[in-house]
Write a protein that binds this DNA or RNA. Structure first.
Lengths: 186, 186, 186, 186
DNA sequence: AATGAATGAGCATTCATTCAT
DNA sequence: TATGAATGAATGCTCATTCAT
């Protein structure tokens, strides 16, 4: 690169975030460093520390972007109920988009030890809740998300095959277990 | 330590595992290194690599021990149903034993990126399933665990207060949603 | 292995040398350690230090054995002169036995920095000289060996293809350059 | 060194190479480490890994520099033929410059196990060839170099005294063995 | 505003060797 | 006689961060 080239590069910040996403997907958060992301983004090392003073800052931006990009396309097929659709979607994600799902969970779970990520993780959960609100009251939506997370994590963490029928059954119970159209919890 | 002291120390391996547990609880897996665990256990650095050639080996042993130590004391109180007891227990763990729960989840979740941990994580899940089997059929037990994990993680990851009533309601739906004593899923 | 098994194991020393040969062939002298050879030979670590107090001792034994095993089968084919046979043999060794040749050269060249290996290296050279003595006087034999070593090393060290015609020509000049059947040098 | 001292030090890279040369000459490649070269060059440890990310990189630079520094001063004395001059030069180098010659050979021979060094080793050979081309055709030059290397190595590796007369005879045969000014090989 | 150079701390791991048995 | 346990030193390497430009 010629000296002075790309002095004003408005897309650089974004390119760094995209590179961080790729690095985390390929090597995990443990493999994310100013160096690895600079190499992946093909920018100078100093550029990454300039735009993101700490790695936590970069992680926050990466999780936020993963959040925004992840729009669950919940569409019920003919003769399919909500439980069936959610169970099918989870299965599709666990197979066709396994890498992406691992990336999302890794970023989300990182909040366990990094308080800076908690607000973004909270926002993530709320967005997923909201995607279910056309179909269920808020408390039920939260319960559905809990089931989906619990089942999905178990599959990812234990190399256990995904049991779609079991998932549909569990989700169905959440949906029909209370009063019809019930409003559990708060 | 005087040279030559403690050359024969049969409890050393165990002491290293205990030290690793304390290190992970205090500083997270990211803070676990051969050095940090050697200092915490007050053993020479070489001793940690002798007993655990890689950090993964040490993590496996630590997770395994956490698993064995964690005997959920599921006791139903007077007038309490299973859902209520589980919701209460989860709440107790999320407050009184928060550090311990974070430790357990961190070790368990680490399996996402460390295949070596997967068998131990699977064993963990099965043990928890088994603890519930006196009260529910296997598929229901798995669904209950999924709900507990999903809700617990959300509390830990988002700094959200624990909603015990909501948890009890969701667990209750899993338990009563199907036929009585139903056998969902496979 | 049952405790106490193989307490008297007369072949163990030999097995360690064989293992060292395989280790050096696969990973180079830099990859040879008491540990690596113990693992390759499937003997306890202490056994290697017991039979060979230092790595140099083990290297000496390994080089000596490589020397003894290496009997150049110099057979002239119909219509082939000595230069042609040597050039052909070198070519065969550089292709079909490349790993073996690299091993031999690595052990031989190690004498540059390890005086303990020098006598064995000298012995090696003399043995090769002797194999040529039916065909050439001692000084000519030494000159032939020098040419073979110089050409062979260049091929090994520079990833250059072997030029068999050039080698035959050079060897031929050594053989016919002086008086017929000449006795150069000392 | 005072903190902050010598933050800008343009000659540092070169000083590290020089230090590596001294370390290899004194202790061999096996004695070359980031630490040993940092100490010899009186620079911080991190500085060596900054300028040479791997030891191979440092070795390449060191061999390249040794190559450039080594300009064989081939000058024929009165009444001396090429074979005599080469034999004399080899003898001089094997006595007066023994350490230097060992250094050069060790770097050159290291290419056997370090592919990264091969291109530089090849360059080395070509440069030596070229130095002989005023006096001999290319194939003859290569043959002369092979003889010199073969003889030189044998002296270095076996603690055998150098036989200058034998060397002159062998070199002479290479030079006069073919047609006058012959073009052996390809 | 942006970045290359620099550095000290830390890392996992390997190792030769020692020693008690 | 053999060997498992143990250990301190060393290695290559990565890194976040600082700083002068």
């Amino acid at each position: 690169m010629a000296p002075g080239a790309r002095r004003h590069d408005p897309g650089r910040r974004q390119r760094i975030i995209d590179a961080a996403t790729r690095v985390v997907e390929a090597r995990g958060i443990a493999g994310l460093s100013h160096r690895s992301v600079a190499a992946e983004a093909d920018v100078p090392l100093g550029s990454t520390t300039y735009h993101f003073a700490t790695l936590d800052e970069l992680l926050v931006a990466t999780l936020r972007q993963a959040n925004e990009a992840h729009v669950p396309r919940l569409v019920l097929r003919d003769g399919e109920d909500l439980a069936g659709a959610l169970a099918r979607l989870l299965g599709e994600r666990l197979t066709a988009e396994r890498g992406r799902v691992e990336l999302e969970y890794e970023l989300y779970l990182a909040a366990l030890r990094r308080p800076a990520l908690r607000p973004v993780a909270a926002r993530w959960c709320e967005d997923v809740d909201r995607a279910l609100e056309p179909y269920a009251d808020p408390a039920t939506a939260r319960a559905l998300v809990a089931v989906l997370d619990g089942i999905g994590l178990r599959v990812l963490l234990t190399d256990t095959p995904y049991d779609e029928a079991g998932a549909r059954e569990a989700l169905g119970r959440i949906l029909t277990g209370g009063r019809p159209g019930g409003r559990p919890g708060s």
